[in-house]
Write a protein that binds this DNA or RNA. Structure first.
Lengths: 187, 187
DNA sequence: CGTATTTTTTATCATTTGTAAAATTTTCCT
DNA sequence: AGGAAAATTTTACAAATGATAAAAAATACG
């Protein structure tokens, strides 16, 4: 997906503001398996996915939980670094070879102070991510694991094809063994 | 909590921008039990809590889930109405008599287009809500129900005193019976 | 192509959480 | 204060999910 479309999907920008942002955006590719963002670091870049798929996961003592998948057109970001300039809680791993657009947070922050259209673009970006996160938080509680799987299968069939089931299970909030049971039932 | 402090806690605004916002803010009180925002409506106001406590809950076929508590200094908002101008998924119920500051969304949206400091204030507001929501989504998965209860007890003791346990249980993602079992253990 | 590695499935048993209903306590109202 | 209503706790049982181990299948790679 091209950068113009990605920026516009978040919030339509006047051409002048868009070309200002684009001055600070560069393209970069990394191979499958690369860790793009790290939980222990204050990250200084955000990325937009041109091609490929990534996952965000957080670790506690004994287990690892995948809580986000990003694909073409999605933004990859350590929200904690971006918002609070603090270490995040997530690693981001590339699940395929990826082509990315990179933007330094610092440059974006400066644009927020100077260009009101870009400030509102940043506002819309946060608002949209917020809606998505809030919906996930709420609707997870309303559905059983099986229903959540079927919903993912219906709305994001490609995700299930492109991502290994252990990560999907974690994203759904169940064990891989449970997911396997569900799949046997649903078939 | 006074409106100046509430606005500033989100993001420090220059005096000029703050007085512009304050022109559009009025005070209003409602009694315990009042439904401030409704799921079936596109809401046209947002509120800041001067005094009192509220809960947001969503309904599905058979059950109701509380997913947010707001108290002094917090913002009460139908995020779906505010962001997308669509019906939300939540009702907001006042759990005590409340004193509120009211701001019409439409007025705020107009200020976003004209005043860059206010646009960045709106951006920061969404970003901070996003961080809070994301943390809840992630860390819920890492802790057992008992750990989540103890955490709430430690960090929000007043909430447990001010809110009935059925709502607390729902917020923690468990049944009231489960919470009762946990409380018997923890005591 | 064949072997090693990774991923997925299956089976068993233990634990957690839910459902339903009754008992108890607290709150509210006159 | 007294009684009704609401909230909370307790109990017994059922269902869902987790943990563990091992087998089967798919994939990677020399």
């Amino acid at each position: 997906m091209e950068i113009d479309q990605i920026l516009n999907n978040i919030y339509p920008l006047p051409e002048s503001s868009k070309s200002v942002i684009k001055k600070y955006i560069s393209e970069i590719s990394y191979p499958k398996g690369h860790i793009l963002l790290r939980a222990e670091k204050i990250e200084t870049s955000i990325y937009f996915i041109k091609k490929g798929i990534v996952r965000a996961y957080a670790n506690s003592a004994d287990n690892e939980i995948t809580f986000f998948f990003g694909k073409e057109g999605d933004t990859v970001i350590s929200m904690k670094s971006y918002v609070a300039n603090e270490k995040g809680y997530e690693d981001i791993e590339l699940l395929e070879n990826c082509d990315l657009y990179e933007l330094k947070t610092q440059n974006l922050q400066q644009l927020f102070e100077k260009d009101i259209a870009i400030a509102n673009w940043g506002r819309k970006f946060a608002e949209q991510e917020l809606i998505k996160t809030e919906e996930r938080l709420i609707f997870r509680e309303f559905r059983t694991a099986k229903e959540r799987y079927i919903e993912l299968l219906t709305n994001n069939a490609d995700l299930i094809k492109r991502v290994q089931l252990g990560h999907i299970a974690s994203y759904l909030g169940i064990t891989q063994v449970s997911l396997s049971r569900i799949r046997a039932e649903v078939k």
